[in-house]
């Protein structure tokens, strides 16, 4: 037994909606102070998982504990410990920035003597000082997300769930948002975040990959790449380009081929091909390959590969 309970421990977590399994026996744990990325394509069960972990949905099966407290037996006890920012913006449009913050400070029971100081801190952190009396309705996407984050952390939670906090936010605002996340993590808040942006995924300490309701992989970004990719991601300069992509998609041992600018980007699923062999093979199909370049592989490549394997696994 650990003397210090982990921020989050999940075991066999499952959610069924009728016949459909949205989350299928997912098991993992999150370390203190970690920025934990939870990734996966649309509909893979990320939001459903988070909702169960926040006590919003009752799981069909499985257990979870937050800082040693059983989420499903004592859902009310975990509420003061966690902060949650939902995927869909869900603050009150008719309240001002300040009123929203005051409301959440109130319902989380932030002592009245500390409320003003805490709200000022958050306004400063989120850069919202100038907008305290703006109606929330009039805020643009990036400001809304920062306010939502602010409301989720007024009570200084130990564990923070962020469900796609940066969707629909411009690159600069995203950058600012991630700075905020790092700052909180550096002060000891554990962060559980979902995103569709691969560059953001690279910023996480560890990344879990969900595919069709199942947890396919979980590791640091670097280990994920070395475990699954064996360094094999290539950019081909070839002619005609579109036919090259089509042909490669059908080729055995190729997980995925796609157009990257004026190149064909190839992720290999095995070590059966060398650049020379592939050039010869394509020449046999009437395609001229001018060059093959090994490129820095990305998490996106890893997930494309995993998704490809997941599909094959299901077909079998």
């Amino acid at each position: 037994m650990n003397s210090q309970p982990l921020p989050l421990e999940v075991n066999g977590l499952t959610k069924k909606f009728g016949d459909f399994t949205a989350v299928d026996h997912v098991t993992f744990s999150v370390q203190p102070g970690e920025v934990f990325g939870y990734l996966g394509p649309n509909g893979s069960g990320k939001t459903t998982s988070i909702r169960m972990l926040c006590g919003l949905l009752t799981p069909t099966e499985g257990t979870a504990s937050i800082l040693g407290v059983d989420v499903f037996k004592n859902p009310e006890q975990i509420k003061p410990l966690i902060g949650y920012m939902s995927q869909k913006f869900s603050l009150y449009d008719d309240l001002t920035v300040l009123e929203n913050l005051q409301f959440y400070a109130g319902v989380y029971g932030v002592p009245e003597s500390e409320e003003k100081k805490r709200i000022d801190e958050i306004l400063h952190l989120a850069g919202l000082e100038e907008r305290t009396s703006s109606p929330t309705l009039e805020l643009s996407g990036g400001w809304r997300q920062r306010l939502a984050l602010g409301c989720a952390i007024v009570h200084s939670p130990k564990l923070l769930f962020l469900d796609e906090p940066t969707s629909g936010v411009d690159p600069v605002a995203r950058r600012v948002f991630w700075d905020l996340i790092y700052e909180m993590a550096s002060k000891g808040t554990t962060i559980f975040i979902t995103t569709h942006y691969m560059d953001e995924a690279e910023h996480c300490n560890r990344v879990a990959f969900m595919y069709r309701s199942k947890l396919m992989a979980l590791d640091t970004p670097a280990s994920l790449k070395s475990t699954y990719l064996h360094g094999a991601a290539w950019d081909l300069a070839a002619n005609p380009l579109l036919e090259t992509v089509d042909e490669l998609t059908k080729t055995d041992g190729v997980a995925q081929a796609s157009l990257h600018g004026d190149r064909a980007h190839v992720i290999l699923d095995s070590t059966q091909w060398s650049p020379d062999q592939l050039t010869k093979y394509l020449a046999g199909k009437g395609i001229t390959v001018n060059s093959i370049e090994t490129v820095q592989s990305t998490l996106e490549d890893v997930f494309t590969l995993l998704a490809h394997r997941g599909k094959i696994g299901e077909a079998a």
Partner: peptide
């Protein structure tokens, strides 16, 4: 309907 209930019921109210 507006989804605000989601943010509301994760609080200790």
């Amino acid at each position: 309907e507006r989804g605000t209930i989601e943010q509301l019921i994760v609080t200790p109210i």
